[in-house]
């Protein structure tokens, strides 16, 4: 085989070292999410007062030794309410996009891969859902099923499905044209295998990035619904309802509105930063960041 000149190629490029710097901003964002997440998860075990206990003698108390961040107009501990509020914000914020990503992601992938009538139906259904006024939908559901964390999560989750469907479908459409998918078909791979092994790993990352964005949006939406009184019913604390209640005391105790707003702002920002950084970090091409 001397003439054939098939050299064993040893000169493979040394792997690109992933020496990408994750900034201090990213670390701070992760730290904030972990802190808030832990506090929310362990709220029951923390040595803090109950968020519904009223200290009638110390209403609208300023921050101090007894109540770290003061009390609200009913004398409830603000710090404790913020922690328990995080519980609701994060529960809804994390669970609602899970509904979107699971249902929307699968629908989008199937529509983008199989095309045809299924795609027409899916896209049509998604358009109908998008055209339906979301606030009316929320009102209708809460009116019939009642206001609870579960119902709020379900409503926001269902409303998020169209966005996830569109992202998943668009990514799948462009990937299905790629040669590596055609190659898998030519090898005789089943549809299930192509969807799970060839397409899913490539669709998953844009979806995860979009999921984190969804978490941020959901926290805001849940806050807005609570602010409007459509969220989790009192006395359970939620950042949105705390802002609404604090609004009435802006002149004497401005921190009552600003503190929950600040917590919400920081959490939303943190999820956005983490989402963006993760997307850039997991791009297999070098220099994508």
């Amino acid at each position: 085989m001397a003439v054939l000149d098939i050299e064993v190629d040893t000169a493979v490029v040394s792997p690109v070292r992933k020496r990408r710097r994750v900034g201090a901003l990213f670390l701070a964002a992760v730290a904030w999410i972990v802190l808030i997440g832990l506090a929310a998860a362990l709220a029951g075990a923390l040595p803090i007062v109950s968020p519904t206990d009223m200290d009638i003698l110390a209403r609208r108390a300023p921050p101090g030794a007894e109540h770290w961040l003061g009390t609200d107009q009913l004398g409830r501990d603000e710090f404790s309410r913020l922690i328990y509020g995080a519980r609701i914000s994060l529960t809804v914020g994390l669970l609602a996009p899970v509904i979107g990503v699971l249902i929307g992601g699968s629908l989008g992938m199937l529509a983008g891969y199989f095309r045809g009538r299924f795609e027409t139906l899916t896209v049509g259904g998604v358009d109908v859902l998008l055209a339906f006024p979301p606030l009316v939908f929320v009102l209708a559901v809460t009116a019939y099923l009642g206001q609870s964390v579960l119902n709020i999560t379900l409503v926001i989750g269902v409303l998020g499905i169209p966005a996830f469907t569109r992202v998943a479908r668009a990514v799948t459409l462009s990937l299905s044209e790629r040669e590596f998918v055609v190659a898998a078909r030519a090898l005789g791979a089943t549809h299930a295998r192509i969807l799970l092994r060839e397409l899913l790993p490539n669709v998953a990352l844009p979806l995860v990035a979009f999921f984190l964005l969804g978490v941020a949006v959901t926290i805001v939406v849940e806050g807005a619904l609570s602010f409007l009184g459509l969220g989790v019913p009192p006395p359970a604390p939620s950042w949105g309802s705390m802002i609404a209640e604090g609004r009435e005391n802006l002149d004497i105790a401005p921190w009552l509105a600003f503190l929950p707003a600040l917590f919400m702002f920081l959490s939303v920002l943190a999820f956005n930063i983490v989402g963006d950084t993760l997307r850039a970090l997991t791009d297999p091409r070098p220099g994508a960041l």
Binding site: V3, L4, D5, E7, D9, A11, V13
Partner: peptide, 12 residues
């Protein structure tokens, strides 16, 4: 006819 290929590839 086997082609006289250049072995390897350009340097990094």
């Amino acid at each position: 006819t086997p082609l006289p290929a250049i072995a390897g590839r350009p340097p990094d």
